[in-house]
Nucleic acid binder design. Structure first.
Lengths: 204, 204
DNA sequence: CTTGCGCTGTACTAACCAGTCAACTAAGTT
DNA sequence: AACTTAGTTGACTGGTTAGTACAGCGCAAG
């Protein structure tokens, strides 16, 4: 016993998994507890409400992604390589989930944000925050690309947002169609929006 | 009495409204019945299940939009005007809902499709079908634009999909941010993807 | 007027929901 | 060994869920 850390951790990762594969509304606290091998009492010892767990889970999930994102968007890489690697990463993550779960699941943040943004202000804010983080990465890369002359725009932040909206749209539509082929159009479309051409893929 | 038509109709429109403003999972059959002023017995006389109602509701909702879409995408309009009017229509619809409901609600089809596509195959298929319809409108307009030389692409269908993904992404992100300003970026971004410039707005 | 039927009203079920609680357990402290 | 306390357990509550059962209503045809 005496391992609150384990319990909390198990609940966080189980929650992400179940909500991603289903939806927030269709997953009960009992479902999460059962899959996590945790008792209900422990759940409510660790988290105040179901919503609190979700917010904590997405917070942790996005924090875990930071090192990977920091590496992809490292200033040591040429900006166009960063942007290309970002696309590859997004697509590869989706393909990995497709292979293990058998369905295209889309972006876990956007899906939940979309489902709950009119109903749970805490979750809405968290998803907004995560989107801003990604847009910040993209803006930096685009700004560097503009500086080296490989992208032409007078508003890198705006262009970053547009590119991000496109990524979101592709992921959602791929989920609705449950079609991994749709994901393949992410990188070319992304390139078109930025007005660039990607060389041969660097990762994968 | 003896007015099944009214009952069904009321349930269909109430379902769209409530699900759009909240989510499928957070709205109960009782909620829909209460708001529609219909008794539960009548509900289950008219529809077999909650899912059946939803599918019928979205089917009807999209059918109601056909005349408007047919007019916007009429061959009598120059293709770039059609595309511009489509953007304006999307944004205006969102703004209208924002003004009446006080929130950006995003695309009703995409939101539900995203929430339920891993759980309810019937609803997933309906949403896929509706997306295909919109993409078909866009493809036609882009094809005509290519013919007159105002858009350059060797794959109009693919370009239409990319433009559609962008629209979806903008609407979802505007919903998550609950920010009508985001909607204003729809038309310029849409234009950038197609590689065109819109003249002064034609409608609105 | 009466029989038949399309539809409605309402009470019901059985499962499930989020959240609570008091008893309990084990590890650390003295 | 006795005490403290962070963490665990699982039964419990009160309310909600989708869906059902069925009696009754009013209209239309006979």
């Amino acid at each position: 016993m005496r391992r609150e850390g384990d319990t909390k951790q198990k609940l966080l990762s189980t929650a992400i998994e179940l909500i991603w594969e289903n939806s927030y509304g269709s997953i009960s606290v009992d479902d999460i507890c059962e899959r996590a091998g945790v008792n209900k009492g422990s759940f409510y010892y660790a988290f105040k409400t179901k919503s609190d767990l979700a917010i904590a889970a997405y917070d942790e999930f996005s924090k875990n992604k930071r090192p990977i994102m920091d590496r992809i968007f490292s200033s040591q890489e040429p900006p166009l390589v960063r942007l290309g690697n970002y696309c590859d990463k997004v697509v590869n993550d989706q393909m990995a989930k497709y292979q293990s779960f058998g369905r295209v699941l889309g972006c876990p943040f956007v899906s939940v944000g979309c489902e709950l943004s009119t109903q749970d202000e805490g979750i809405r804010r968290k998803m907004e925050e995560i989107a801003e983080q990604v847009i910040r990465y993209l803006t930096g890369a685009i700004r560097d690309a503009v500086a080296e002359g490989s992208i032409g725009t007078d508003d890198p932040a705006q262009l970053a947002k547009e590119a991000y909206y496109f990524v979101v749209g592709v992921l959602i539509q791929a989920k609705i169609q449950n079609d991994p082929e749709t994901l393949k159009r992410l990188k070319p479309g992304f390139a078109r929006i930025l007005g660039i051409r990607f060389e041969e893929p660097i990762t994968a």
